[in-house]
Design a protein around this nucleic acid. Structure first.
Length: 499
RNA sequence: GGCGCGGUAGCCAAGUGGUAAGGCCGAGGUCUGCAAAACCUCUAUCGUGAGUUCGAUUCUCACCCGCGCCUCCA
């Protein structure tokens, strides 16, 4: 079995084969940094992250480039409003985006920024003009001539042949040859950011940056191009038109689009009050791992309903996984091995792989892992009850399966607390104290006990329990629980973890 | 209007032409000084109607409902 992916270009699920042996070149449309990223943005970025991780796990060498759009209408408008430069304005949100990505365990791509490729864009446009695909208007703007690119519409499956251009020309677009023609370059306007280039002053249109930067980083023809479904038209359609007109070659071969999510069953929008950034959710006390889990639970092409119940459910699921690993690693089992366990681990790995091979069916991959969990827990329960059917060497293959699982899903490592603490401090620095929930304070805000301190308390507690001084032991347990320490007393002895 | 996606248990959500994964929550049970963890049992006539078929949740059609794109929203 090999990877099969839905390709928006063909509208079908296809076998995935990179152009160059086992090297994959992929490009993802990243954020426009005019505000903090919201969960919808991050659904897409996590979907691409899962793809990237799985490609590498499958043995591909992946060159993964993501752009950051650091100049556009909104940025120009907002920075002007704040009275700062475009650079100053975007620096804050670029930083926030990098932080949020790290918070969600998203692996780092190679980042490219629009404003660092302005001259290359101008050259690209000049070349298009030379070939007759672009034209300059009186004010110094450049447009792409769609009539010159007959395949226009092939990605979004739109048929522009029968459209009457003239009928839809807006008054302010009178300079364009055709209403469908899109801007490659916008002539400067007073007070707006502008760059001096070979084609004159101005700023780039939205689509040109991705054509220029992706081709620069990955070549004129590369394997994968990803983004949110809203980008199919016009953004990606226009990228294809620009790029293929210039190079005469196929631009991206596979187009990967993540579907929009719903929030509490409704489209996310500021007016509905269901618009959340990652930071909003953490301030409410939700763990980054819960957010990541919820966003990766539903296969990327399906509508995902993001709910607060779902967030709680995700937290329980993650905890179940972590508990399982804890159970395996915190106990010394009798020496030896059980062949069935190794076999179960391998079957689980195989099932995860075939699930993910099938257009990244994350739900099925997760189900395979939970099946393994249940079966092994059953055996461990029996072992605890005296049956000698789980051996120390069984741990290794099971941990191996968990590791493979987590190479994709990335939730096992319990680093929620420091991440939440960082956001807590950010909120205080930003003057957003009143948004800090008791839940967040409970997890991230209280003074932490060191391992030594915990072990000290634990020793006291065990001593009390041995002499059946339960009043003392219960008090100690309560104290530890209050500090976010969960103590488990099992037949094999006492063990603890942080909540 | 054009193009596309979906409606599966209280919630989230896979999947298949032969009577439905997984997670969460709830109820009962096992274990247990308490707690935690875990396990077991219970909870779905798969939007509605019709058709194709030996047999459909899975294919076809119609209808109802939700959602997306149709010029800068991931």
């Amino acid at each position: 079995m090999a990877l099969r992916l839905y390709n928006t270009l063909s509208g079908k699920i296809e076998d995935f084969h990179p152009l160059d042996d086992n090297r994959v070149r992929m490009y993802a449309c990243g954020p426009t940094v005019y505000d903090y990223g919201h969960i919808g943005n991050f659904r897409t970025f996590i979907a691409v992250d899962l793809l990237y991780r799985f490609l590498r796990q499958s043995g591909y060498e992946v060159r993964y480039v993501m752009n950051i759009t650091d100049v556009d209408d909104k940025i120009i408008r907002n920075s002007a409003h704040d009275g700062v430069s475009v650079q100053q304005y975007t620096a804050k949100y670029i930083q926030a985006f990098l932080e949020d990505s790290a918070t969600l365990g998203i692996e780092k791509p190679i980042f490219v920024r629009a404003t660092e490729h302005i001259n290359a864009m101008a050259d690209f446009i000049a070349e298009l003009a030379k070939k007759g695909f672009a034209y300059r208007t009186e004010d110094g703007s450049y447009y792409f001539r769609i009539a010159k690119f007959p395949e226009y519409g092939k990605l979004s499956k739109k048929d522009f042949a029968g459209m009457n251009d003239g009928a839809r020309v807006d008054v302010d677009e009178y300079e364009k040859d055709s209403a469908r023609d899109f801007a490659l370059w916008k002539a400067p306007k007073p007070g707006e950011a502008s760059w001096e280039t070979a084609i004159g002053p101005g700023r780039p249109g939205w689509h040109i940056e991705c054509s220029v930067m992706s081709m620069e980083e990955l070549g004129p023809s590369f394997d994968l191009h990803a983004g949110g479904e809203d980008l199919i038209f016009p953004h990606h359609e226009n990228e294809i038109a620009q790029s293929e007109s210039l190079s005469g070659q196929q631009f991206a071969r596979y187009w990967f689009h993540a579907r929009f999510l719903l929030v509490e069953g409704q489209k996310m929008s500021k007016s509905l009050g269901n618009f959340f950034t990652i930071r909003d959710l953490v301030l409410r006390g939700h763990k980054p791992s819960s957010i990541r889990w919820l966003l990766s639970q539903v296969p990327y092409r399906n509508q995902l309903n993001f709910t607060f119940d779902g967030l709680k459910s995700a937290a329980s699921s993650v905890e179940k996984l972590r508990n399982f690993r804890f159970r395996l690693t915190s106990t010394q089992f009798p020496a030896g091995s059980t062949p069935q366990i190794a076999q179960l681990a391998q079957e689980t790995i195989d099932k995860m792989k075939s699930a993910l091979d099938d257009d990244l069916n994350t739900a099925e991959a997760q189900a395979a892992m939970f099946d393994m969990l249940r079966k092994v827990n059953t055996v461990l329960d029996a072992a605890q009850a005296g049956q000698n059917n789980f051996r120390q060497e069984d741990v290794k293959p099971l941990l191996g399966a968990l590791t493979k699982f987590d190479e994709i899903f990335g939730v096992l490592n319990d680093d929620d607390q420091p991440k939440m603490k960082a956001i807590l401090e950010w909120a205080r620095a930003e003057g957003r104290e009143k948004e800090i929930s008791p839940e967040l304070l409970g997890i991230a805000g209280s003074a932490q006990l060191t391992d030594e301190q915990v072990n000290q308390k634990l020793a006291e507690m065990e001593a009390a329990r041995k002499t059946r001084n339960f009043k003392t032991s219960d008090a100690l347990r309560a104290e530890l629980t209050g500090a976010g320490i969960i103590v488990e007393n099992t037949k094999e002895g006492v063990r603890w973890r942080r909540k």
